[in-house]
Amino acid sequence: MRGGRKVQITITVDAGILEYAERLVAAGKAASVTAVFNDAVTEKHITDQRAGSAARTRPAGRPRPGGRDDAAREPPTD
C-alpha cells in the first residue's frame, strides 16, 4: 500500500480530529495531515484483513467471541 499511486480526495472530518492531526504534524510525529489519515486508514485496513483471515481459519459455526455474531444474538436495548 505504501508508495503506490496517490489519488486526491476530499473528506469532511470532525474539527477535533483535524486539530489532533495538525498537532501530530506540529509535534513532528507525522509528516502531514494527509499522512495521519492515510496511516489511520491503512491500520484499519490491516486490522480488517487480519480479522477476515482469522474468520476464514475459524471452524464453521464458531463465531468470534465478542464479534458481530454475539451482538446479533443480543436483544436491542431500547
Rank of each mutant, 00 (worst) to 15 (best):
M1R: 12
M1T: 11
R2E: 11
R2K: 09
G3N: 06
G3F: 02
G3A: 08
G4L: 04
G4K: 08
R5S: 13
K6Q: 09
V7C: 01
V7H: 10
V7N: 04
Q8K: 12
I9H: 05
I9D: 00
T10M: 07
T10G: 11
I11D: 05
T12Q: 06
T12R: 13
V13P: 03
V13Q: 07
A15D: 15
G16P: 01
I17Q: 09
I17F: 10
I17A: 12
L18W: 06
L18H: 14
L18N: 13
E19G: 02
Y20V: 02
E22T: 05
L24V: 02
L24E: 14
V25I: 10
V25H: 05
A27V: 01
G28K: 13
G28T: 10
G28L: 12
A30R: 11
S32N: 09
S32C: 08
S32Q: 07
S32P: 04
V33M: 01
A35M: 05
F37G: 05
N38P: 00
D39L: 11
D39N: 15
A40C: 07
A40P: 03
V41T: 13
V41F: 07
V41P: 00
V41R: 06
T42W: 07
E43A: 15
K44H: 11
H45A: 11
I46D: 15
T47M: 10
T47L: 15
Q49F: 02
R50W: 04
R50A: 14
A51V: 12
A51F: 02
A51S: 06
G52W: 03
G52S: 07
S53V: 07
S53C: 00
T57A: 11
T57S: 14
T57P: 00
T57K: 13
R58F: 01
P59S: 11
P59F: 00
A60N: 04
A60Q: 08
A60E: 13
G61N: 01
G61L: 09
R62H: 12
P63C: 09
P63Q: 05
P63Y: 08
G66E: 07
G67L: 07
D69K: 11
D70K: 04
A72P: 03
A72V: 09
R73M: 08
E74Q: 13
P75K: 05
T77L: 13
D78S: 09
